[in-house]
Amino acid sequence: MELDHYIESGIIESYALGLATASEIEELQHMRKLYPELNTEIRMVERRMEMVALTEGVQPPSKLKDRIFQRINWDEEKDTKEKDKSNYTFINIQSRNQDYITVHKWWKLFFIMVFIVSKVCLFAAIYYYLKYQQSQEKSAQSSSQTEYRIPTK
């Protein structure tokens, strides 16, 4: 049978050890689709290797566990900080009241200038009005003096 021959070729062991090439892995995936029972065989081989590996394990230095978990915590804290930076809350400061309009900030300067110019114009108008009044009074006075002198001649 094709499947038995395939299994006996040692392809599963080659795959489990990480020695299978890309094309062999591709072929294995194809065979897994054709023969789902192949998954059971792979599982059995890997479980057997797992049992052996667990019994042969070498305890890593105890400091290594702290180092690994510390690094994982740092990575997570860094990720959280980056997420917090990008995850800001948008606050809409525009009024919901439709009676208000939004204008460019230059309009503020424009209105201040208009206000100052209008004040200057107002003071100038008052000043020239008073000047005009004074000159009118002067001319009225000088004409009355002329009329008074004529009869004395």
Partner: peptide
């Protein structure tokens, strides 16, 4: 991201992977 699962994996498989 369960820390208990991480610790379990490290304690159970750590020596085997270290040997590999």
């Amino acid at each position: 991201g369960d820390p208990v699962a991480r610790e379990l994996i490290y304690d159970h498989y750590g020596p085997a992977l270290y040997n590999i």
